[in-house]
Amino acid sequence: MRDDRNKWAASGTLGDGFEIGDVVVSRVRVSRQLLVSGPRVRTQIDVPTVGWPEICEATTYALSLRRDRVLVVNGDPVEDGWDDATSQARSDASDLYSVFDLSGRDAFNVVKRGTEISMESPSRSVLRRFFGLQVMLYRVQAEDRFRLHVARASEDALLGYLESAAGSAWAARSR
C-alpha cells in the first residue's frame, strides 16, 4: 500500500456546510432515522409519506423508498428486529445517514447538476443517484429547499460535489 494521506483532504473539511453565491448547504440534526420494511408498511405508518416532488411540511414523516420500505424521520424509539405481528423489519439507521439541506435561489440549479430530474416527472421514491452517490432527495418546508440523506462515509464526497456545483451555478449567473 502507498501512503496517500496527503492525497486526500481530511474528512470533515467542509464542516457543517457552506454558502456560495445563491446556495446554502447546512447540516440538519434529526433525532432518529428508522428503516422499516414490510409487505404492508405503506399502509401501516401513520405519519405523512414523502415522495417526489411533494414538499414535506411535517416534523415527523416517512420517506418513501421502495414498495416495501420507508425511512421514518424523527419518529419514536422502536426496538430493532423482526416484528411478527406487523410483519415488519426495523433497523435504527440514525447514524447511517448524514442529512443536509440545500436552499437558496440556485438550489434547484445545483440539483440539476447532479442528476436528471424535473418537477414535472414525479417519483414514488426519494432515492436517487446524485453525482454518482446514492441519496434520498426531497423537498422540505419550501419550494426551493431540498433535503438530502447520504450514507455517512460518502458525506465528504457529497459536500465536495455540492460545493463545486454551487460554484458553477454562481459562475453561470455572473456570466
Binding site: 421502495r66 414525479p122 414514488r124 443517484r129
Partner: peptide, 17 residues
C-alpha cells in the same frame, strides 16, 4: 443515457440500473 422505467420509482437514468 437511456431512460428506463422502474415499476415503483418511475423513469430514471439508465446508470441507476
Amino acid at each position: 443515457m437511456q431512460i428506463f422505467t422502474c415499476p415503483f420509482c418511475g423513469p430514471r437514468d439508465e446508470r441507476e440500473f
